[in-house]
Protein backbone atom coordinates (compact mmCIF):
# COMPACT_ATOMS: atom_id res chain seq x y z
CA UNK A 1 0.00 0.00 0.00
CA UNK A 2 2.84 2.37 0.94
CA UNK A 3 4.70 1.58 -2.29
CA UNK A 4 1.53 2.26 -4.27
CA UNK A 5 1.04 5.58 -2.49
CA UNK A 6 4.67 6.54 -3.18
CA UNK A 7 4.24 5.66 -6.86
CA UNK A 8 1.09 7.76 -7.02
CA UNK A 9 2.84 10.65 -5.30
CA UNK A 10 5.82 10.44 -7.63
CA UNK A 11 3.60 10.29 -10.72
CA UNK A 12 1.63 13.26 -9.38
CA UNK A 13 4.84 15.16 -8.73
CA UNK A 14 5.96 14.53 -12.33
CA UNK A 15 2.60 15.68 -13.72
CA UNK A 16 2.57 18.80 -11.52
CA UNK A 17 6.20 19.57 -12.48
CA UNK A 18 5.36 19.20 -16.18
CA UNK A 19 2.33 21.46 -15.76
CA UNK A 20 4.42 24.13 -14.05
CA UNK A 21 7.15 23.76 -16.71
CA UNK A 22 4.68 24.34 -19.56
CA UNK A 23 3.23 27.36 -17.73
CA UNK A 24 6.68 28.83 -17.09
CA UNK A 25 7.72 28.23 -20.71
CA UNK A 26 4.55 29.96 -21.91
CA UNK A 27 5.29 32.94 -19.66
CA UNK A 28 8.93 33.07 -20.83
CA UNK A 29 7.82 33.09 -24.49
CA UNK A 30 5.30 35.82 -23.66
CA UNK A 31 7.87 37.96 -21.84
CA UNK A 32 10.31 37.70 -24.74
CA UNK A 33 7.72 38.49 -27.39
CA UNK A 34 6.77 41.54 -25.36
CA UNK A 35 10.43 42.52 -25.18
CA UNK A 36 10.76 42.26 -28.96
CA UNK A 37 7.65 44.39 -29.35
CA UNK A 38 9.06 46.94 -26.90
CA UNK A 39 12.36 47.16 -28.78
CA UNK A 40 10.51 47.62 -32.04
CA UNK A 41 8.29 50.20 -30.41
CA UNK A 42 11.28 52.15 -29.14
CA UNK A 43 12.69 52.25 -32.66
CA UNK A 44 9.36 53.31 -34.12
CA UNK A 45 9.17 56.74 -35.73
CA UNK A 46 6.40 58.77 -37.27
CA UNK A 47 6.79 60.58 -40.57
CA UNK A 48 4.45 63.46 -41.29
CA UNK A 49 4.62 64.19 -45.02
CA UNK A 50 3.79 67.76 -45.94
CA UNK A 51 1.96 69.01 -49.01
CA UNK A 52 3.25 71.78 -51.24
CA UNK A 53 1.19 74.43 -49.40
CA UNK A 54 2.72 73.66 -45.99
CA UNK A 55 4.50 76.92 -45.47
CA UNK A 56 4.60 79.74 -42.95
CA UNK A 57 1.73 79.66 -40.38
CA UNK A 58 0.48 76.19 -41.48
CA UNK A 59 3.94 74.73 -40.85
CA UNK A 60 4.12 76.46 -37.45
CA UNK A 61 0.72 75.11 -36.43
CA UNK A 62 1.79 71.56 -37.33
CA UNK A 63 5.06 71.94 -35.46
CA UNK A 64 3.44 73.37 -32.33
CA UNK A 65 0.82 70.61 -32.36
CA UNK A 66 3.62 68.06 -32.37
CA UNK A 67 5.79 69.68 -29.71
CA UNK A 68 2.95 70.27 -27.27
CA UNK A 69 2.61 66.46 -26.90
CA UNK A 70 4.65 65.63 -23.78
CA UNK A 71 5.44 62.12 -24.94
CA UNK A 72 7.31 63.29 -28.02
CA UNK A 73 11.06 63.13 -27.41
CA UNK A 74 12.47 64.23 -30.77
CA UNK A 75 11.12 66.30 -33.70
CA UNK A 76 13.15 66.87 -36.81
CA UNK A 77 12.08 68.85 -39.86
CA UNK A 78 13.39 67.78 -43.27
CA UNK A 79 12.78 70.14 -46.20
CA UNK A 80 12.39 68.72 -49.69
CA UNK A 81 16.07 69.37 -50.31
CA UNK A 82 17.18 67.69 -47.08
CA UNK A 83 15.04 64.69 -47.85
CA UNK A 84 16.39 64.52 -51.38
CA UNK A 85 19.99 64.67 -50.15
CA UNK A 86 19.43 61.89 -47.68
CA UNK A 87 17.71 59.84 -50.37
CA UNK A 88 20.50 60.50 -52.87
CA UNK A 89 23.10 59.30 -50.39
CA UNK A 90 21.15 56.14 -49.72
CA UNK A 91 20.41 55.30 -53.35
CA UNK A 92 23.76 56.28 -54.91
CA UNK A 93 25.47 52.92 -54.62
CA UNK A 94 22.43 50.99 -55.90
CA UNK A 95 21.33 53.22 -58.83
CA UNK A 96 23.90 55.92 -59.68
CA UNK A 97 21.72 57.58 -62.38
CA UNK A 98 18.62 58.22 -60.33
CA UNK A 99 20.03 61.06 -58.14
CA UNK A 100 20.47 63.15 -61.30
CA UNK A 101 16.87 62.74 -62.40
CA UNK A 102 15.23 66.25 -62.37
CA UNK A 103 11.81 64.71 -61.72
CA UNK A 104 13.03 63.35 -58.39
CA UNK A 105 12.63 66.67 -56.58
CA UNK A 106 8.94 66.62 -57.48
CA UNK A 107 8.51 63.14 -56.03
CA UNK A 108 9.95 63.81 -52.55
CA UNK A 109 8.07 65.67 -49.85
CA UNK A 110 9.14 67.81 -46.92
CA UNK A 111 8.40 66.01 -43.67
CA UNK A 112 8.67 65.87 -39.89
CA UNK A 113 10.28 62.85 -38.23
CA UNK A 114 9.03 62.21 -34.72
CA UNK A 115 10.25 59.86 -31.99
CA UNK A 116 8.43 59.20 -28.73
CA UNK A 117 9.96 58.73 -25.28
CA UNK A 118 11.70 55.32 -25.33
CA UNK A 119 10.58 54.39 -21.80
CA UNK A 120 7.00 54.03 -22.99
CA UNK A 121 6.06 50.45 -23.66
CA UNK A 122 5.43 49.21 -27.18
CA UNK A 123 1.65 49.22 -26.80
CA UNK A 124 1.70 52.72 -25.31
CA UNK A 125 3.92 54.01 -28.12
CA UNK A 126 1.54 52.55 -30.69
CA UNK A 127 -1.48 54.09 -28.94
CA UNK A 128 0.23 57.49 -28.69
CA UNK A 129 1.26 57.41 -32.32
CA UNK A 130 -2.27 56.52 -33.33
CA UNK A 131 -3.78 59.43 -31.39
CA UNK A 132 -1.10 61.85 -32.62
CA UNK A 133 -1.75 60.74 -36.20
CA UNK A 134 -5.47 61.42 -35.67
CA UNK A 135 -4.70 64.93 -34.41
CA UNK A 136 -2.19 65.81 -37.12
CA UNK A 137 -3.82 64.29 -40.21
CA UNK A 138 -6.68 66.84 -40.55
CA UNK A 139 -4.34 69.85 -40.26
CA UNK A 140 -3.79 72.01 -43.30
CA UNK A 141 -0.51 71.20 -45.05
CA UNK A 142 -0.40 67.52 -43.95
CA UNK A 143 -0.36 65.15 -46.93
CA UNK A 144 0.13 61.84 -45.15
CA UNK A 145 1.09 60.37 -41.78
CA UNK A 146 3.01 57.13 -41.62
CA UNK A 147 4.46 55.14 -38.70
CA UNK A 148 4.58 51.60 -39.98
CA UNK A 149 1.21 51.05 -38.36
CA UNK A 150 0.28 48.03 -40.45
CA UNK A 151 3.06 45.68 -39.38
CA UNK A 152 3.05 46.96 -35.83
CA UNK A 153 -0.69 46.34 -35.65
CA UNK A 154 -0.26 42.88 -37.14
CA UNK A 155 2.47 42.00 -34.67
CA UNK A 156 0.53 43.51 -31.79
CA UNK A 157 -2.60 41.56 -32.72
CA UNK A 158 -0.58 38.37 -33.06
CA UNK A 159 1.03 39.06 -29.71
CA UNK A 160 -2.36 39.62 -28.07
CA UNK A 161 -3.70 36.37 -29.51
CA UNK A 162 -0.62 34.49 -28.27
CA UNK A 163 -0.82 36.18 -24.89
CA UNK A 164 -4.49 35.27 -24.45
CA UNK A 165 -3.84 31.72 -25.65
CA UNK A 166 -0.95 31.31 -23.20
CA UNK A 167 -3.01 32.73 -20.35
CA UNK A 168 -5.86 30.37 -21.20
CA UNK A 169 -3.45 27.43 -21.43
CA UNK A 170 -1.91 28.41 -18.09
CA UNK A 171 -5.33 28.64 -16.45
CA UNK A 172 -6.32 25.22 -17.80
CA UNK A 173 -3.02 23.70 -16.67
CA UNK A 174 -3.31 25.27 -13.22
CA UNK A 175 -6.79 23.80 -12.92
CA UNK A 176 -5.47 20.40 -14.00
CA UNK A 177 -2.62 20.63 -11.46
CA UNK A 178 -5.20 21.62 -8.83
CA UNK A 179 -7.24 18.47 -9.48
CA UNK A 180 -4.16 16.26 -9.62
CA UNK A 181 -2.99 17.49 -6.19
CA UNK A 182 -6.53 17.18 -4.89
CA UNK A 183 -6.59 13.58 -6.08
CA UNK A 184 -3.36 12.63 -4.34
CA UNK A 185 -4.55 14.24 -1.11
CA UNK A 186 -7.86 12.37 -1.39
CA UNK A 187 -5.94 9.13 -1.82
CA UNK A 188 -3.74 10.02 1.13
CA UNK A 189 -6.80 10.72 3.29
CA UNK A 190 -8.29 7.39 2.27
CA UNK A 191 -5.08 5.57 3.10
CA UNK A 192 -4.88 7.23 6.52
CA UNK A 193 -8.60 7.16 7.31
CA UNK A 194 -8.04 4.85 10.29
CA UNK A 195 -5.48 7.22 11.74
CA UNK A 196 -7.85 10.16 11.22
CA UNK A 197 -10.64 8.26 12.92
CA UNK A 198 -8.43 7.52 15.93
CA UNK A 199 -7.22 11.12 16.07
CA UNK A 200 -10.83 12.34 16.12
CA UNK A 201 -11.57 9.83 18.80
CA UNK A 202 -8.85 11.17 21.09
CA UNK A 203 -9.90 14.79 20.61
CA UNK A 204 -7.70 16.10 17.82
CA UNK A 205 -8.99 19.33 16.30
CA UNK A 206 -9.64 19.51 12.53
CA UNK A 207 -6.58 21.77 12.21
CA UNK A 208 -4.38 19.17 13.89
CA UNK A 209 -5.69 16.50 11.51
CA UNK A 210 -5.39 18.70 8.43
CA UNK A 211 -1.82 19.83 9.12
CA UNK A 212 0.11 16.81 7.73
CA UNK A 213 -2.01 16.84 4.56
CA UNK A 214 -1.42 20.55 4.05
CA UNK A 215 2.31 20.04 4.53
CA UNK A 216 2.22 17.16 2.04
CA UNK A 217 0.38 19.28 -0.52
CA UNK A 218 2.67 22.26 0.04
CA UNK A 219 5.79 20.11 -0.28
CA UNK A 220 4.44 18.55 -3.47
CA UNK A 221 3.55 21.83 -5.18
CA UNK A 222 6.68 23.73 -4.08
CA UNK A 223 9.14 20.94 -4.93
CA UNK A 224 7.46 20.49 -8.33
CA UNK A 225 7.70 24.24 -8.86
CA UNK A 226 11.39 24.30 -7.88
CA UNK A 227 12.14 21.41 -10.24
CA UNK A 228 10.26 22.97 -13.17
CA UNK A 229 11.96 26.34 -12.54
CA UNK A 230 15.35 24.64 -12.66
CA UNK A 231 14.51 22.89 -15.93
CA UNK A 232 13.15 26.13 -17.44
CA UNK A 233 16.34 27.94 -16.38
CA UNK A 234 18.59 25.31 -17.98
CA UNK A 235 16.46 25.39 -21.14
CA UNK A 236 16.75 29.17 -21.37
CA UNK A 237 20.52 29.04 -20.84
CA UNK A 238 20.77 26.59 -23.73
CA UNK A 239 18.74 28.91 -25.97
CA UNK A 240 20.94 31.85 -24.97
CA UNK A 241 24.14 29.89 -25.64
CA UNK A 242 22.80 28.89 -29.05
CA UNK A 243 21.89 32.49 -29.91
CA UNK A 244 25.28 33.75 -28.72
CA UNK A 245 27.06 31.26 -30.93
CA UNK A 246 25.11 32.40 -33.99
CA UNK A 247 26.40 35.57 -35.64
CA UNK A 248 22.92 36.38 -36.95
CA UNK A 249 21.16 36.17 -33.55
CA UNK A 250 24.03 37.28 -31.30
CA UNK A 251 22.36 40.64 -30.57
CA UNK A 252 19.03 38.99 -29.80
CA UNK A 253 20.79 36.92 -27.14
CA UNK A 254 21.03 40.11 -25.06
CA UNK A 255 17.27 40.14 -24.83
CA UNK A 256 17.09 36.61 -23.41
CA UNK A 257 16.59 36.76 -19.65
CA UNK A 258 15.15 34.47 -17.01
CA UNK A 259 12.45 35.53 -14.55
CA UNK A 260 13.48 38.06 -11.94
CA UNK A 261 13.63 36.95 -8.30
CA UNK A 262 10.39 38.77 -7.52
CA UNK A 263 8.67 37.02 -10.44
CA UNK A 264 9.95 33.63 -9.22
CA UNK A 265 8.70 34.48 -5.71
CA UNK A 266 5.30 35.39 -7.16
CA UNK A 267 5.09 32.12 -9.12
CA UNK A 268 6.14 30.19 -6.01
CA UNK A 269 3.40 31.94 -4.05
CA UNK A 270 0.84 30.99 -6.71
CA UNK A 271 2.08 27.36 -6.66
CA UNK A 272 1.97 27.23 -2.84
CA UNK A 273 -1.47 28.86 -2.66
CA UNK A 274 -2.83 26.46 -5.25
CA UNK A 275 -1.41 23.45 -3.41
CA UNK A 276 -2.86 24.63 -0.09
CA UNK A 277 -6.23 25.50 -1.61
CA UNK A 278 -6.45 22.15 -3.33
CA UNK A 279 -5.72 20.33 -0.06
CA UNK A 280 -8.05 22.52 1.98
CA UNK A 281 -10.98 21.90 -0.35
CA UNK A 282 -10.27 18.17 -0.34
CA UNK A 283 -10.04 18.20 3.45
CA UNK A 284 -13.44 19.80 3.93
CA UNK A 285 -14.78 16.41 4.96
CA UNK A 286 -12.34 16.29 7.84
CA UNK A 287 -13.66 19.65 9.04
CA UNK A 288 -16.97 18.08 9.96
CA UNK A 289 -15.46 14.88 11.29
CA UNK A 290 -14.17 12.00 9.20
CA UNK A 291 -15.37 9.29 11.54
CA UNK A 292 -18.73 11.01 11.88
CA UNK A 293 -19.02 11.25 8.11
CA UNK A 294 -18.23 7.55 7.82
CA UNK A 295 -20.87 6.80 10.39
CA UNK A 296 -23.52 8.78 8.56
CA UNK A 297 -22.58 7.09 5.29
CA UNK A 298 -23.31 3.74 6.86
CA UNK A 299 -26.65 4.85 8.21
CA UNK A 300 -27.76 8.39 7.60
CA UNK A 301 -30.20 10.04 9.99
CA UNK A 302 -33.77 10.32 8.84
Amino acid sequence: MKTKQFQLQFATWLVVSSGFLVIQTAFLVMFHLEKVLTVWGQEMQMNIYLSEDAEGPALEIIKSKITENKKVSLVQYYSKEDTLNVFKKQIKSYAPDIPNDPELLKAVQANFQISLLPQLGAEEILTQLQSLAQEISPLKGVADVSYGQDWVKTFSTLFQILKNSFLFLSAVLLLAVFFVISNVIRSSIYQRRREIEVLELVGATPNFIRKPFLIESLTLSLSAFAFSTGIAFIFLRMVKTYLNSSSYFAQSAQLVQFFSLSQIALFALVAATMGMLSALLTLRKVNTGFAAAQGSQQAGPA
Partner: peptide, 22 residues
Protein backbone atom coordinates in the same frame (compact mmCIF):
# COMPACT_ATOMS: atom_id res chain seq x y z
CA UNK B 1 -20.92 22.80 17.74
CA UNK B 2 -18.44 20.89 15.51
CA UNK B 3 -15.73 23.21 16.84
CA UNK B 4 -16.37 22.08 20.44
CA UNK B 5 -16.55 18.34 19.72
CA UNK B 6 -12.75 17.68 19.95
CA UNK B 7 -12.67 19.44 23.34
CA UNK B 8 -15.61 17.35 24.53
CA UNK B 9 -13.88 14.14 23.41
CA UNK B 10 -10.89 15.08 25.56
CA UNK B 11 -13.18 14.67 28.57
CA UNK B 12 -14.15 11.11 27.71
CA UNK B 13 -12.33 7.89 26.87
CA UNK B 14 -13.58 5.40 24.31
CA UNK B 15 -12.49 1.81 23.71
CA UNK B 16 -13.67 -0.59 21.04
CA UNK B 17 -13.81 -4.29 20.35
CA UNK B 18 -11.28 -3.89 17.52
CA UNK B 19 -8.93 -1.79 19.72
CA UNK B 20 -8.41 0.89 17.01
CA UNK B 21 -4.65 1.05 17.55
CA UNK B 22 -2.40 2.54 14.89
Amino acid sequence: TPHRIPYFRRKIGVIFQDFKLL
